[in-house]
Amino acid sequence: MCYSAQVVADYKKFVRTFGATMDMHEFARLFFERAEGASKAKIPKAMEDAFGEPKTDAEREIKALIGRFNAEQTTKLEQDLFKQRKRLADAERTLQTKVTKAATESQRIATDKIAWAKGKLEDLQRTEPKPRDSRIFPGHYSPVMVIENGRRIVRPMRYQCRIAGKPASYDVKYPGTYNARRDNLEGFWKPLFGYSHAVMLVDVFYENVQKAKLEGTLSETHDQRENVVLEFRPSNGELMHVACLWSRWSAPDEPDLLSFAAITDEPPPEVAAAGHDRCIIPIKPENIDTWLNPDASDLAAMYAILDDRDRPYYEHRLAA
């Protein structure tokens, strides 16, 4: 499973590299629904920062929606910070006279929540970019590229695919649908494979790995639940054009949901040696247009693209 990835969140990269057109309507809808409270969309900071210097009226509208949402978040965080500081002060006063379990726990919780709120406020106010600003997790949004009517188009989509026609409860029933296993493309993913293909640009991907597998020790010597997060990065430093499937989900009285899944396959030797059993599939640049224009009557051609993948060597290290 591709548990997390550091993606190209700035749509301008797609425009410069592929001559793609931004679907401004979908970007505006995403930010509008979040600002209105109609959705709880999780959007990477880098995706917001891409609108920091708007050039068009549409971009200025999106920047205003981002500013409105962030101002509301700032107010909520400041209010929570005040509340938790009071809670901490009350707990510390109690502990000065008598050590109780309740006061100790209240002190711990307040301290943790203060640190979390301060970190969120710092991120909202920060203008200097950091690598983590582009990192997505399941349920987060990312720009992906599709082709419609012969045009390359960039749209924001959620990284957990809900196939059109399936109930919203599938998000909970099948929480792993941010990845589409290659060996299940004609099973669970049959409605999309050969019909709705996309590409995500990825710099780095992250995987949860059992510590015992990473260290090559007997599993009996470790807690089976003890995991570490590894960062995998192509040694050539090049972007990965990751093969994806996507869907537009619609339902009465519900906003449309655009969502996608990254296709995964058996891992290359160096990823397997690090203790992980799946890997995303970066396709070659010359195959992108064919991948984005799938022919459901010729799935063999689609499998051939997945087989003829880019094959960088993946260096790994413990994630920061």
Rank of each mutant, 00 (worst) to 15 (best):
D49A: 14
N184T: 15
N179V: 12
M240C: 09
P175Q: 07
Y313T: 14
E220F: 14
A212P: 01
V229T: 14
A91F: 03
T97L: 10
T56M: 04
D80H: 12
D112W: 07
Q125P: 04
L218R: 15
R135V: 13
A35Q: 10
N287L: 10
A115V: 09
D289M: 01
K211C: 08
L192V: 00
G187T: 12
I147K: 09
E72L: 14
E36N: 11
K166A: 12
L81C: 01
A38R: 15
T100C: 05
E215V: 12
T111W: 08
A89I: 05
G119Y: 03
I288N: 03
N179Y: 08
A301Q: 10
H25N: 13
A319K: 13
K63G: 02
L65W: 10
R155W: 07
V7T: 13
Y170M: 15
A243T: 02
V172K: 15
A28V: 06
Y178S: 04
K130E: 15
F188D: 08
Q96T: 08
K118M: 13
S39R: 15
E231R: 12
E148T: 11
P131S: 05
E48R: 15
A20V: 01
M47P: 08
P267L: 01
N184C: 10
F32N: 11
T97D: 09
R132W: 10
I147Y: 03
C2I: 14
E270F: 07
E315V: 13
D49Q: 15
N287Y: 07
C161M: 11
C244G: 05
F27C: 01
A5N: 03
A296Q: 06
T17F: 04
L95N: 02
A272V: 05
N236Q: 08
N227C: 04
P234R: 03
K63D: 03
P285L: 08
D123N: 13
A117L: 00
A273Y: 02
M1R: 11
W291N: 06
V99P: 10
F137T: 09
R68K: 13
F18W: 14
E33R: 12
V229P: 03
S196E: 12
K211Q: 15
M24G: 13
A5I: 07
N293P: 07
E33K: 00
R135Y: 01
K190G: 04
A168C: 01
M200A: 14
S297R: 08
M240Q: 07
